[in-house]
Design a binder for these strands. Structure first.
Length: 120
DNA sequence: TGGGTGACCATAG
DNA sequence: ACTATGGCCACCC
C-alpha cells in the first residue's frame, strides 16, 4: 500500500510532464500508461507513469487520473482512488461506460497523445 | 547494499 | 488463446 510517496527532484520533471499530458486528455476519452510513457520518450518504463498517477492525488492541480487506464482498457487503478467507485463514476459522467471494470468501446475512446497531441 | 514490489508492456513458448 | 519471463526504474524495508 502506498504510504509516504515523496517525489525526488529528479523525477519531478518526469511527473510534471505526465501530469501535463494527462490534463490534456479530452473529456470522454481515455489513454494508457504505456502511451504516455512512449509519448514522453520513457520507452517501456510505463510503471513510472503509474507511479506518477499514484502521487498525482497530492498535486494541487486536479489530475484526471480516471482517464488513464491500462493497455486493454482495464481500470487497474480503481483501488487507489478514494473509493473504488470514484474512477468508474467519473468516467460514467463523461459518457464512458464501464463494464466489469473495463472501458466499453475502448478502441474508439482511446486517445493516443503521441498521435493526437502535439508538443507545445 | 540488496531484494521485493508495482495504477505496465512486449515478447516468447 | 494463455502463461511465463524480462525489462523498465523509483520506492520501501
Amino acid at each position: 500500500m502506498a504510504k509516504s510517496l515523496k517525489i525526488s527532484e529528479k523525477n519531478a520533471d518526469f511527473f510534471e510532464k505526465v501530469f501535463m499530458v494527462v490534463k490534456q486528455i479530452p473529456e470522454g476519452r481515455v489513454t494508457s500508461y504505456g502511451a504516455i510513457a512512449r509519448y514522453l520518450g520513457a520507452g517501456r518504463s510505463s510503471r513510472m507513469v503509474g507511479w506518477a498517477m499514484n502521487v498525482s492525488h497530492k498535486q494541487k492541480a486536479a489530475i484526471p487520473a480516471h482517464r488513464v487506464v491500462n493497455r486493454v482498457g482495464l481500470l487497474t487503478g480503481k483501488n487507489h482512488f478514494p473509493t473504488p467507485f470514484a474512477m468508474e463514476e467519473a468516467l460514467n459522467i463523461e459518457g464512458i461506460e464501464i463494464e466489469d471494470d473495463q472501458v466499453v468501446d475502448f478502441d474508439n475512446k482511446f486517445w493516443d497523445p503521441s498521435r493526437e497531441l502535439k508538443i507545445d
